[in-house]
Design a binder for these strands. Sequence first.
DNA 1: TTGGCTTTTGCAATCGATTGCAAATAACCT
DNA 2: AGGTTATTTGCAATCGATTGCAAAAGCCAA
Lengths: 345, 345
Amino acid sequence: MSDIARLAGVSTATVSRALNDSPLVTAETRARVKELARSLNYTINVGAKNLRLRRNKTVAVVVPYDSASRQSVSDPFFLSMLGSLADALTEHGYDMLLSRVDARQLDAAAQFIDTGRAMGVILIGQWRHHDQLNQMAARNLPIVIWGALLPQQLYCTIGCDNIAGGALATEHLIACGRRQIAFLGDTKLPEVHLRLEGYQRALARNNIRFNKRLCVSAPFLAEGARNAIRELQQRNIEFDAVFACSDLLAMTVVSTLQKAGRRVPEDVAVVGYDDIEMASHAHPPLTTVRQPIEAGGRALVAALLEFLEGGRPQPKTLATELIVRQSTPPVLSDNHDFTGARLAQ
Amino acid sequence: MSDIARLAGVSTATVSRALNDSPLVTAETRARVKELARSLNYTINVGAKNLRLRRNKTVAVVVPYDSASRQSVSDPFFLSMLGSLADALTEHGYDMLLSRVDARQLDAAAQFIDTGRAMGVILIGQWRHHDQLNQMAARNLPIVIWGALLPQQLYCTIGCDNIAGGALATEHLIACGRRQIAFLGDTKLPEVHLRLEGYQRALARNNIRFNKRLCVSAPFLAEGARNAIRELQQRNIEFDAVFACSDLLAMTVVSTLQKAGRRVPEDVAVVGYDDIEMASHAHPPLTTVRQPIEAGGRALVAALLEFLEGGRPQPKTLATELIVRQSTPPVLSDNHDFTGARLAQ
DNA sequence: TTGGCTTTTGCAATCGATTGCAAATAACCT
DNA sequence: AGGTTATTTGCAATCGATTGCAAAAGCCAA
């Protein structure tokens, strides 16, 4: 910048003002400076500018990882969410700092704000660290989280109604005449826990007894689905349907079952969760509970921006809906006293 | 920092040295300063540090978008690549700045370096801007690209051998007795263009005439695959196999064909490209040409780091292989004079 | 006590921008 | 011309760190 100042015969102060279209500088001078800047293809140093202005246009997006499995980000749902966030942030002129932190210490996410690297943080998934997050919220840090709405929650979450989602899926399977519905998911995660609750409520509404042995814990990995099915087989329990808490799990379940010689959906109906793009291309096409990824990314960004402008965004629940793709014949399991199928709400 | 200096009764210079474990400061003083810093839970301002040191630990990852379609990042392959890059960069202690730029002006990527926001750039896909990229390379900017190796290329690319990949897929289909093999992909992209070349070479080696009408241009979107199949039908041309240039395309092709009543792989054999995780869960499981995403991300990061250390990384070609999953019966199309199937290399 | 040497510290410049305040210049009025 | 106001400019401080160089402090021997 001082080079430009010298060449233009003005001070750096004037150059700065000219480049920022300040009205304090003559049109003629401004033109000269800008022209000079372009010809030298000069670009201002963002770091220095940020230091002086004590702000920047960067948002950190944090994807926690499980330190035990050290797995990489691979779930298509999370990845799509990243894409959606990248778009939404770009639209608002923000840079996106993508980072992974150990899920055991989610508060490390606050470091991005403390060190001035980012103005705010978007956290994908609250994991099981409700308390840590509440502490951060108490510091009034601009941080917004994709996840479930929990009781006594001080932080701002954006997410879907997981109880409703779980119920939708379950009601659908019941309406198809299924009664022994397996549940797959990592219930230690709040979102999954709520889906389980929706599952249980739907069962109760239809007078079906909840059977704990039909619930299998499975991490969000293809591996997890295979193990879960094996587990069900070892438990030696019959099931005519599976509600899997992600599409990745569901699709893996389908192919595992098919390999084992069971027909889908005739023998076992499967419902997934998320509605990732691949779900519609699977065979058979996957019935699933849709989470609006595009809208989710946009909502997260909108909430964070509200925070940055001094507001206090409220948690927001996005619409979720059942996407029926398998034309499961609503046949009755022969070993049940089925009293009447109801359509999914 | 000046607060700490005051409270510790030393100067900021000493505080700085203490926090950086400089041997110039007494162990006793260092301990006192560090303790104080922790109790005030102070973290140094990264921006200021970077300004002074004139470097930082940030790498920009640029995902170009097609300004015409304004599509969001959605291809699972690219998304997985992002995940892989995030992991590799985190491993080396670098932050990852994710950004989207208009594909028409890829040189905007250089801005990240010029403005000091990042030390280097990783660009995903060279699109059709060989020249722009060469110009940037001439400036000796630390930028590394996922893409194809082209003649007279000055910049550093990491990627697979696309000619070999295209040939692998085609030879496989030929070995299965297919002779009218449709080709799907956006040949304006260098990588796809090379795959087409591999396809042509494989045909030639097997004395099959290349038929231009079997080649359909399709962008990397589910939409693209559906349109391409429709286009083939409108051209009223027979085909007994499809080589699609991404798994997303391939999976969409499969479901489109199935909807139209054609059996896969009996009537039409399909081969994809990339080997995304979903490929193995598709039904039927997708035969595809594998691109090692994990290794790719790591190689990109390694090359960029070499650049940052003053080296001049050489383009690198990663191993690619055919993953056979469909057990396509090697039957002959009845309307052809088939002279002898060869196994895929 | 003094000089010489080593170990610790602090002063002050620096990185590259922005901006309050004052000074210089231009424009206008009496 | 002289005074007043409006418009442009520049000086210098500032953001929060790092570091070369010099000064201070400590130590030891003469």
